[in-house]
């Protein structure tokens, strides 16, 4: 048997796309799990309204914060899940030894989680409109941008921390414990920006919050990209 010529090693982008396709395919094939995360986020939104009682004024005022808390809680589940899939049968080793660039693994996981959370945010928004009686005061495009930037900001550090905690003991406690304090700036600015979109922005503050969110993204996508190989290689 003659060995065919070995194909050229794939580049960073090709590997990222291949891994991302695989992750999305897994999400699609296990959409029951995906549905569970969506229902979890919806239940969170519902619980906030119970915690506050039937005061719709108060709910409407705080809607931005509850919306982002629901996404944050769901992100812990989706991030943990995306690395649980890899630890079953040591799949991450299989990918590493393929070989796939470790940075491609970071990018694919972070982009995958961003897509998932953005979709989740878009899905639960109408429910929030119904539950809390909010309406968009400025523009839906602003809201979409905030949602995307906020989910990007949760996903980059979240991917690094999920990779770490999936290999440690007590992984379910560890991920939120590490992630929550870290994403406070992102959460703050996303919440503020969302509130401005929902309640009007008379003083034109939206831009500065979006700037903060973008800066946060730039820093953590960069640092994550550089640090991630050290975390998953022995």
């Amino acid at each position: 048997m003659s060995t065919p010529p070995r194909p050229r090693p794939v580049g960073l982008i090709t590997a990222t796309v291949a891994l991302l396709r695989k992750d999305l395919l897994i999400e699609w094939r296990t959409r029951a799990r995906l549905n569970a995360i969506i229902f979890f986020a919806l239940a969170t939104l519902l619980m906030f309204s119970f915690a506050l009682g039937p005061d719709t004024k108060l709910l409407e005022k705080n809607a931005g914060g509850y919306y982002w808390l629901a996404i944050l809680f769901a992100s812990v589940l989706s991030l943990g899940e995306s690395f649980r899939v890899e630890s079953e049968n040591a799949c991450l080793d299989g990918v590493r030894l393929a070989p796939a660039d470790a940075r491609a693994i970071f990018l694919s996981k972070a982009v995958g989680n961003t897509l998932l959370l953005t979709a989740l945010g878009a899905l639960i928004f109408p429910v929030m409109v119904a539950l809390y009686g909010v309406h968009i005061a400025t523009s839906a495009a602003d809201l979409g941008l905030i949602l995307l930037l906020g989910c990007l900001a949760l996903s980059a550090p979240g991917t690094v921390y999920a990779a770490i905690s999936s290999n440690a003991r007590a992984r379910d406690v560890l991920l939120p414990l590490l992630l929550f304090p870290l994403v406070i700036p992102a959460l703050l600015s996303a919440t503020k920006a969302t509130t401005l979109v929902l309640q009007g922005d008379p003083m034109n503050q939206l831009g500065s919050w979006l700037g903060l969110l973008s800066g946060f993204n730039l820093i953590y996508w960069g640092v994550g990209f550089v640090l991630f190989p050290r975390i998953i290689e022995d």
Binding site: K22, E88, N89, A90, C91, G94, V95
Partner: peptide
Amino acid sequence: LSHASFLYEDL
């Protein structure tokens, strides 16, 4: 070829 199969169960 290791003890762990490196296979994705859901695929």
